[in-house]
Design a protein around this nucleic acid. Structure first.
Lengths: 342, 342
DNA sequence: TTGTAAGCGTTATCAA
DNA sequence: TTGATAACGCTTACAA
């Protein structure tokens, strides 16, 4: 593919900065400078270098670059919950925006809580600039231990709030969001909500349930009922909702089920309709959270809340660049998406 | 964190093989050998090294390793279609199985057909052992050009069939799969199928539509109608199906809609139900392909076909290891998943 | 089985 | 603005 200095054909066709330097009649370091924005280099030199690079098909080797420098321009995204379609949305946004700003993404499938340490190890062995957790099962304690042992430069919890002082959380304001939902539900005249929550783990968590219950109590005086499932799985939500309804008298049914996210909301809707033959929203209304693509389907027409994922991803980039004060990154506000389910 | 040879505190706390070597009283190369399975090293030396490594918190640096050797144990997965939930299933399987065998995954968000080249460039700059395409929009021509220019060692098309001789396709046998579906539909007594296909692009494609139509013609003598949408998007499938039904007399309605995948099938079901008030399967039946998690929901209860993704991913690993004959990798057979939609 | 020399392609640092 | 030296941490090849 390309000829090396010694004339030998290189196995993977590598063209190095030295080749370009020889072609352009400059030094290797000038070639390097031509490929960075901030470098002090004359326009003329840069032009010469770029033409030579184009001609030879040179691109900088990010591996070698990462080895010598303190940056790899690589981040790891750790995911442990591929059942929730919202993960797909987050991955799409994160990878797109990270790539736009020059970062590549290492996708690490965390096989469970016990795998946290191994997953972080994988990331650290590639010298990622940061590890981003968009999972749910990681345990704060395991995390702290793993973090101490591994040389992960930054640990970012995305779309979730962590108590761990060594991590940076980027998430939306759960109080603000739940206030929007509670206001909507109240204004629509619902009076008997049931809260359907996800895993009640000790890991970085969502304050949505407690926030909603407290807001409701402040407004109406009574504390709504709540149920939960161990995973954000629509089928579990289906079963749990069905159990709840089956164990209550029709007169004790909620008039609205407020769900911690869309995955749960869709399961709840299915149960209300297919297990009890009731109508949504006429008999029981349902609200979600996330606005996954399926929420818009004619089946669900889900009233939900959309987090500003793109803005959150942009903030993450600022953190990577070191431009952001990590203290104020959990105040993002989204918007109510009103459809027909409530 | 750790002390270097020169006594300086290393910024990122790096413990190198040299540190471990000093601690264990062996050479750096013995440390290296201790960390590989095939190396010729005495059990005693290995034990000494491993204890020292444990004590110092040493792990090999994959970046430095990749730089010198011909392998990076890193593969890129290029995705351009985050709307289809089946992508989430494939990513979960691929990352899990790759990681099990020692490969890390670079997730590259291909922003469109025109981005093929840039996406492959990203991958090549990290020296991936292979680039795996699970997208749909890449163009054969662009691919060929990009492939020539970039130093990607292997290009693997996953779950899709490519004509490009320089790529390796790993996919299921579309003829076998469509035969199973056609047989099922015929045996159930349906006589007027409509085929709902995805993008009819020139890129690596699915032969499902042509195969089904031909099988049907051979069996019944008539050629079924077919329609298509430009993306695998349920909402587009909804609109297209609705258009088709609206422009036909009730007596000309199909008795079954055979869909190229589940995403389209779910859109079709929504249209049949919510736009025309018809029942599935009593008025019009629907079949899918992929068996995405949502296909099992009480809403859809979709009769579909499940590809053996895990087996395909294992085959991919064999290709990476160089153990497989790339000639016979499109013969995977899945299984019919029979539910109530047809 | 173990050790030595050389080098992977880039960048930090300093000198010109 | 440009060039030179040394190093990043590891692995290939070969020698002991």
């Amino acid at each position: 593919m390309s000829i090396q200095k010694d004339g030998k054909l290189n196995q993977i066709g590598t063209v190095t900065a030295d080749h370009v330097a020889a072609e352009a009649g400059v030094s290797r370091w000038t070639v390097n400078r031509a490929f960075r924005q901030e470098a002090s280099i004359s326009a003329k030199s840069r032009k010469k270098v770029m033409e030579a690079a184009e001609k030879l098909g040179y691109v900088p080797d990010l591996l070698a670059s990462s080895l010598r420098s303190e940056r790899s321009n690589l981040v790891a995204v750790l995911v442990d919950d591929f059942a929730n379609p919202h993960k797909l949305v987050m991955m799409e946004r994160l990878t797109r925006i990270l790539r736009k700003h020059g970062w590549d993404t290492l996708l690490v499938n965390m096989l469970g809580e016990a795998d946290t340490s191994a997953a972080l190890l994988s990331a650290s062995q590639r010298r990622v600039d940061a590890a981003i957790l968009i999972g749910i099962q990681f345990n704060e304690e395991v995390l702290a231990t793993a973090l101490g042992a591994q040389r992960v430069r930054k640990l970012i919890i995305f779309a979730r709030d962590s108590e761990n002082p060594n991590t940076i959380s980027i998430c939306c304001d759960d109080v603000g969001a739940m206030t929007a939902i509670a206001d909507y539900v109240l204004n629509k005249g619902y009076r008997k909500p049931l809260f359907l929550a996800g895993p009640q783990t000790e890991s970085a968590h969502l304050k949505r349930k407690d926030t909603f219950l407290e807001l409701w109590r402040q407004n109406r005086g009574d504390l709504p009922a709540s149920i939960s499932v161990p995973f954000y799985d629509p089928l579990l939500a289906y079963e749990r909702t069905a159990d709840y309804l089956a164990s209550h008298d029709r007169s004790d049914y909620p008039d609205v089920v407020v769900c911690e996210n869309d995955a749960l909301a869709m399961g709840a809707i299915d149960a209300i309709r297919f297990r009890f033959g009731l109508r949504v929203p006429q008999d029981i209304a349902v609200t979600g959270f996330d606005d996954v693509p399926q929420a818009a389907s004619p089946n669900y027409r889900l009233t939900t809340y959309r987090q500003p994922i793109s803005a959150m991803a942009e903030a993450l980039v600022e953190v990577l660049k070191g431009n952001n004060d990590p203290a104020h990154l959990c105040g993002f506000l989204g918007e109510m998406i009103v459809r027909e389910s409530a």
